[in-house]
Simulated scan of single mutants.
Amino acid sequence: MTILYAAEAEEAAQWTDSLRALDPSLEIRFWPDWGDPATIDFVVVGGRSPGDLSIFPKLRAIQSTWAGVNHLLRSPGLPSGVPIARMVDRGLTGSMTEFVVYQVLDEWRRGPDLRAAQRDGRWLETMPRLAGDCRVGILGLGTLGTDIAEKLSGLGFSLRGWSRSAKEAPRGVTLFAGAESLPAFLNGLDILICILPLTAETENILGRSLFDHLPDGSVLINVGRGAQLNEADLLAALESGRIRRAILDVFREEPLPSEHPFWRHPKVTITPHVAAITRAGTGADDILENYRRAMTGRPLLNQVDVQKGY
Rank of each mutant, 00 (worst) to 15 (best):
T143E: 11
G154S: 09
V69M: 07
A294D: 01
Q63K: 02
C134K: 12
W15F: 14
S153D: 10
S80V: 10
F56P: 04
S240R: 05
L256E: 10
D233T: 00
R115L: 11
D33T: 03
E253I: 11
S240H: 00
G140P: 05
L53T: 08
E107G: 04
R74D: 08
L210M: 15
A12R: 00
H265R: 08
G51D: 03
I3S: 03
R129S: 14
L300S: 06
N70D: 15
Y5R: 04
L144P: 02
D233H: 05
P197W: 10
L78E: 00
N290H: 03
I191N: 01
I40H: 00
L192R: 03
E98K: 07
D216E: 15
D33G: 04
F251H: 13
D147E: 15
Q228C: 09
I138D: 03
D286M: 11
W66K: 05
R225M: 10
T199L: 13
S240M: 02
V45A: 01
F42S: 03
S165M: 05
I62F: 09
V45K: 02
I221N: 04
G145D: 11
G178F: 10
L300F: 00
I148T: 04
I55H: 01
G140N: 05
I3E: 03
P170F: 10
N70I: 09
K151N: 04
A67V: 08
S163F: 11
G241H: 12
T296A: 13
A237H: 07
P76Y: 08
T16N: 12
L220N: 01
G154C: 02
W162H: 06
G178T: 12
L300W: 01
D133Q: 15
Q63F: 06
A9T: 13
D52T: 07
L105I: 11
P83N: 05
P76I: 09
K167Q: 15
L175P: 06
N230L: 03
D106C: 08
E203L: 04
P57C: 14
R292N: 10
T126C: 09
M127F: 11
T2E: 14
I148V: 15
H265E: 09
I287D: 02
E125C: 08
V219F: 09
T2Q: 14
P257L: 06
K167Y: 10
W31A: 03
R119F: 07
W162E: 06
L19P: 03
A237Q: 07
R48I: 07
K58F: 11
R60E: 07
G161T: 09
P197V: 08
T269D: 06
G145N: 09
R279I: 02
P37F: 12
A6D: 07
E98A: 13
T143D: 08
A232N: 12
K58A: 13
T269V: 13
R160F: 11
T65V: 14
D120F: 06
W123D: 13
V219P: 00
A13S: 05
E289S: 14
G68K: 01
Q14T: 05
G94E: 04
R292F: 07
P76S: 10
T93I: 13
D89C: 03
E10A: 14
Y5W: 10
V101H: 00
N222W: 12
N204Q: 12
L256R: 12
